[in-house]
Write a protein that binds this DNA or RNA. Structure first.
Lengths: 216, 216
DNA sequence: GTTGTTTCTGACCAAATGGTCAAATTATTT
DNA sequence: AAATAATTTGACCATTTGGTCAGAAACAAC
């Protein structure tokens, strides 16, 4: 048995494969975000990736496979900040850091955020299993951290789960509902400056609601 | 010129028209919520409404008209609670009331909430104008109310707009992202009891972050 | 009943779209 | 250069789907 260019028996992608798969995923991310799974056409994705439709199918057999791959790529970056929540750290500092990180994700990856949101809105047909297993375990672990902060008097008594949901909701809002936010604020876009103001506001409201004595 | 069944020259809908348009709108709401605009098929909507596809087109010439009608029907109930925010009332009471009302909307109209969210996620192609005009004016008015509460020392200094966005985000989260919430919490559904716990948590965090001296 | 109007549907069409395939083109190896 | 393998695409097919239309059925007015 001949092993092409690696010791491993695994596929071992060529340079062209790596480049084109990345191009397709990038294009798909945009198109899925703009039109949803059903509204996105393979033709559009191919055009955006600068190749023909059959060539997209050469790399991803079915549209659903492509969608799945896009979601998986998003999940990793979506999840990272929560993992970083440090049990040993100062609660105020840790939470502020988490809010900032999630907000930065919304600012820098609005398209990814929108795809993720659309998937959940549609009932999470693809991510259902993942949410109920990996994500659930992760949140459970971090909820224990928050609970511990509460029990040691470092945080007011609130439901850790709903605190996490509140942070998710508040931060993702600025990516997912950007058209509403900008329309209501009478702005064209949300710039870096505006995101700083958002971070201030969110931290002020949420943290001072959490910290005993309003210590901030 | 003969006026059918009313003095007015306006269409004046028959009983059958009223009944069927309502049926179609209800069916469309479900189907749009489940599949998005492009994923929803007129056939499905017709089947759910218990009639043939051409008959749906008899009442709504194009699918887009139907979608628009559904959105308009949703907007009214979506908007009502904010209008009720009373400048003369007690800030804590008013905000708590608003949070509760929005949360009740999420609980009782999750489907409507999801359609609205999907529309915004797709860039608000249909609602863009409305958001920038009517909604913008309404929020502007209510932001002034909040600003006044701040200026008279009844509320901590936070950006009124971002406070409103925070409340929208937090409350709608439980309708729009229900699959994620239930998966993470390991529940099948969110019952009345859970929504009461949510209301407590949200009010506790947000309000105690807003009221000076933690008076609650 | 007869007549006119509204409501409803089967059959159909044209366009869009996911996916296939054989053949062409390009890269890699020998 | 020749041979082999990987990449790319034009042409094509089957299915889905929004929308139309002629006429049938139900209803209303007389």
């Amino acid at each position: 048995m001949k092993l092409a260019r690696s010791e491993s028996a695994k596929p071992s992608k060529t340079r062209i494969q790596m480049r084109n798969e990345a191009r397709i995923l990038d294009a798909a991310e945009h198109v899925f975000a703009e039109h949803g799974f059903r509204g996105a056409t393979v033709d559009r994705i191919a055009a955006r990736a600068g190749m023909s439709k059959p060539n997209v199918h050469y790399y991803f057999k079915r549209k659903a496979d492509l969608y799945f791959a896009v979601l998986m790529r998003i999940l990793e970056i979506w999840l990272a900040p929560l993992k970083d929540l440090d049990p040993g750290g100062d609660p105020a500092r840790e939470l502020r850091h988490y809010i900032a990180a999630k907000l930065r994700f919304s600012r820098d990856n609005p398209i990814a955020s929108r795809i993720f949101a659309t998937e959940i809105l549609q009932g999470a047909p693809v991510l259902e299993r993942y949410l109920g297993e990996d994500l659930r375990r992760l949140v459970e672990r971090k909820a224990k951290v928050i609970r511990h902060w509460i029990d040691t008097g470092k945080l007011n008594d609130v439901d850790p789960y709903h605190l996490v949901f509140l942070i998710w909701a508040a931060t993702q809002h600025y990516a997912d509902f950007a058209p509403q936010v900008t329309a209501v604020m009478g702005r064209k876009t949300l710039g870096k400056d505006e995101f700083e103001r958002i971070e201030d506001s969110l931290c002020k409201i949420i943290l001072s609601g959490l910290l005993p004595r309003g210590e901030i």
